[in-house]
């Protein structure tokens, strides 16, 4: 860290490049970890709500709090929620499911489109905690990738999921999903599902960085497609960026932090961004922050055209 800071380098905006330094004080650390802590609170809180409703009969106003699991659930006995990807797979098996689950899927689809497609991945998915742990351990141990795999392969897996659902007559991903296995067995009793979870952990740890979430998971790919139009995005304030690269170092999907594309759009436009907020925490210049898409675009229109003209020239 210190070596980096001593070498004075200037960013494209003429300012000296600073790097991220983890603050010593607890309050400073908490400030850096704020999104991480919030994400864990949401992930574990949801899990606890599901678990408590099944195992401890949690009720509010005589109604069960949150029954079911992430595949399909019911909030307070009236609001159906369902995984739109699972419902899509079921419909491809030529079964028309009941209205309830269709409404639930529509609600989640709308919510996901609002708060940003893969926000689900970083803020809700329980497997995210496992893969984050693998990524953290891997950074600590400095483990190198065994092979390189295109991150586009997830879209192939997505297409394959839909094709196999139609072909075999069962929801193809739901039947092998390590996410569902982990979530289901945490709530309804542990079976051999942890083997699949350990498998994902080891794959991410020793074989490929962000191997599952960043390369293979078709659910992430599905949400990435929706994320292309999602509202909540990470805004990118071009003039303040010194190209220090701290954000790309910590990002689980570094390809989304394409500075060129980000300065044109004024935000991280790729649907593959999980809105995890790690980049916001490590950015020493406060270039990045959460914002709404239309808000960003309205603000950045003059800037955008200017930079585009500069680039074209």
């Amino acid at each position: 860290m210190n070596d980096k800071q001593q070498s004075v380098r200037l960013g494209p905006n003429g300012k000296p490049v600073r790097y991220f330094v983890m603050p010593d004080s607890l309050s400073g650390k908490l400030q850096v970890w704020r999104y991480l802590l919030l994400r864990r609170a949401v992930q574990l809180g949801l899990l606890l709500l599901f678990f408590g409703t099944v195992n401890w009969d949690w009720k509010i106003a005589e109604q069960p709090v949150l029954t079911g699991n992430l595949s399909s659930s019911e909030l307070l006995g009236f609001l159906p929620l369902a995984d739109p990807f699972a419902v899509l797979q079921i419909m491809l098996t030529r079964q028309i499911p009941q209205q309830e689950v269709l409404i639930g899927a529509a609600i989640i689809l709308a919510a996901v489109a609002l708060i940003g497609g893969r926000t689900w991945c970083a803020w809700v998915c329980p497997l995210n905690m496992v893969t984050d742990l693998a990524a953290w351990t891997r950074r600590r141990l400095g483990i190198k990738d065994v092979f390189i795999l295109s991150r586009q392969i997830r879209y192939t897996v997505l297409a394959l999921t839909l094709f196999l659902s139609a072909l075999t007559g069962v929801a193809a991903f739901e039947w092998i999903s390590p996410i569902s296995m982990l979530h289901r067995e945490l709530i309804y009793g542990i079976g051999a599902g942890w083997i699949a979870v350990i498998g994902v952990f080891l794959f991410d740890l020793f074989i490929l960085r962000n191997g599952w979430c960043g390369h293979l998971c078709p659910l992430g790919a599905f949400y990435a497609v929706i994320g292309k139009v999602a509202l909540l995005r990470i805004a990118f304030d071009t003039p303040t960026c010194t190209h220090c690269g701290e954000c790309a170092k910590i990002c689980p999907e570094p390809q989304v932090l394409n500075i060129k594309a980000a300065s044109v759009a004024g935000m991280i436009a790729s649907g593959e961004c999980t809105n995890c907020g790690r980049c916001i925490a490590v950015c020493p210049e406060d270039t990045l922050k959460f914002d709404l898409r239309h808000h960003i675009q309205n603000q950045q229109v003059p800037n955008t055209t200017e930079s585009q003209q500069r680039r074209a020239a």
Partner: peptide, 27 residues
């Protein structure tokens, strides 16, 4: 038909007052 339609959510398990129903684990 059942295998294709079941979304594996466990809401039937939650609803069962006698804890009769279980969700099949991976093994």
């Amino acid at each position: 038909d059942f295998n294709a339609r079941c979304i594996k959510c466990g809401q039937c398990v939650d609803a069962c007052p006698y804890d009769t129903l279980k969700l099949a684990t991976a093994d």
